[in-house]
Nucleic acid binder design. Structure first.
Length: 421
DNA sequence: TCTGGGGTCCTAGGACCC
DNA sequence: TCTGGGGTCCTAGGACCC
């Protein structure tokens, strides 16, 4: 049996942990740049705040209903997530951290345990240790556990736990469950299925395999097997290495200056290199893109990107910054108001992979490695970007708007000391 | 008139997840 | 005035190989 544990309204709940006076009150958290709503407390949902609603469109509603608004504080949520996961992980022989607020527990071998009672205890423990409320769904497959979790959240709020183990109970719930709410059925498939008169999970499960394979691909077929109680989606206890890494941001203000774009792109390339080093990988290609504000129909629009092949795979910040800036200069055109830029890195390979390159073993490479690892260590101890490249600038002209940011209660602040190299 | 039977790799686009 | 930022996998079709 598997359990899917999911934090309720995670970001909103994190903010509440440090401001308990907000318990029982409507709370929302906004995306970067204070753009859209990305988390809502139950009270905010009840007040009619839609997921993804642009903040400026719901200003009136916020005022009317007295909704408390926060800028997103990912340092806080990431740290809270680690705490929640370490509590939850201790309750099962193996687990998979599926997202910032979700974890699958694998209860293999626990045949004599009353799982519903056990999960009630888990829930209580998380609440006591972290103050974060969670819901738990228990079932023989991951997909059914996801479904059980959704039902628990909606219909069994007080208990917060739902176990689906016998066929009759599973069928009853499949019958009541909208097909579009299934894990793996998104907006498009839901529309398509509705057109074919398939509205519940049970109706989908009844379809024949060939039809599902043809119309919903092998993923759809796996999903249906899982609904029938046959596990097809294995646990992934260790996260696989990333195959591509993207760092991009919208700017707080639009800019037409090359220098401002350069500073942002250097910052993104450096961040991407840090992520690459964290998984002990190199990359052999980098791409940089810029674009104008697509919502401003009154302004000239421009989008471009440049893909660059890197001769020798690397994870050196300095080198990736250099390539990113090279690409940027090739696509930058003056006279446009830019709103967003970003850096992708591709062709990722393990750092220790043998490179049969003529120039592989330069002493200079060794020095770069030492520099990067020293900088990474300093930043880990003292705060992100305490040591950084001068090319990254101070970010004052493009930085995010975060007008309602809560303090980083559990982690250090950035930019305490700035040392440029 | 008739026109084989395998493969690989790459890319774009579309679906999904949080 | 204002509209997020990451990822994964699959498929079809084309180019190319023998």
């Amino acid at each position: 049996m598997y359990a899917l544990c999911d934090c309720n309204n995670f970001y909103a709940s994190c903010e509440r942990v440090f401001k308990p006076s907000l318990n029982g009150k409507p709370v929302v958290v906004l995306s970067n740049n204070d753009g859209c709503v990305i988390a809502r407390s139950q009270e905010a949902k009840d007040a009619g705040v839609a997921m993804g609603a642009p903040a400026f469109e719901i200003k009136e509603l916020i005022k009317q209903k007295g909704i408390h608004v926060f800028s997103s504080n990912y340092a806080l949520y990431g740290d809270m997530s680690n705490r929640v996961m370490s509590v939850l992980g201790s309750f099962a022989p193996s687990f998979e951290v599926y997202s910032v607020d979700e974890i699958f527990l694998d209860f293999k071998g626990m045949h004599n345990t009353n799982l519903t009672e056990y999960c009630k205890k888990i829930r209580k423990s998380v609440r006591q240790n972290t103050k974060i409320p969670i819901s738990i769904g228990i079932a023989p497959t991951k997909t059914l556990a996801k479904m059980a979790n959704k039902i628990a959240k909606k219909k069994y709020k007080e208990i917060g736990v739902l176990e689906l183990s016998d066929t009759a109970t599973i069928e009853k719930h499949l019958n009541e469950f909208p097909v579009g709410d299934l894990w793996g059925i998104g907006y498009r498939y839901a529309k398509f299925l509705e057109k074919n008169n398939i509205r519940t999970a049970f109706e989908l499960m009844q379809m024949n395999d060939a039809w599902i394979r043809k119309n919903l691909s092998v993923q759809g077929l796996k999903l249906v097997y899982e609904l029938r109680g046959i596990p097809c989606i294995p646990m992934e206890e260790t996260a696989p290495d990333k195959k591509g890494i993207c760092v991009s941001r919208s700017f707080g203000q639009m800019t037409n200056e090359l220098q401002v774009l350069e500073e942002s792109v250097a910052t993104f390339a450096n961040r991407a290199a840090q992520k690459l080093r964290k998984q002990n990988s190199n990359c052999a290609a980098i791409s940089v893109f810029i674009h104008t504000n697509q919502f401003r129909a009154d302004l000239k629009q421009y989008y471009n990107s440049r893909y660059i092949q890197i001769p020798i795979p690397t994870n050196d910040s300095g080198e990736l910054i250099k390539w990113a800036l090279t690409g940027l200069k090739q696509i930058y055109k003056p006279g446009y108001m830019y709103k967003k830029a970003g850096v992708f890195i591709f062709e990722i390979s393990p750092e220790d992979a043998v490179q049969t390159n003529l120039f592989a073993a330069l002493p200079e490479d060794d020095r770069k490695k030492k520099l990067n690892s020293t900088v990474d260590k300093l930043n880990k101890i003292m705060g992100r970007n305490v040591v950084k490249y001068a090319a990254m600038g101070d970010g004052k002209k493009w930085k995010l708007r975060q007008e309602m940011l809560s303090p980083c209660y559990t982690t250090r602040l950035d930019d305490v000391f700035i040392i440029t190299i």
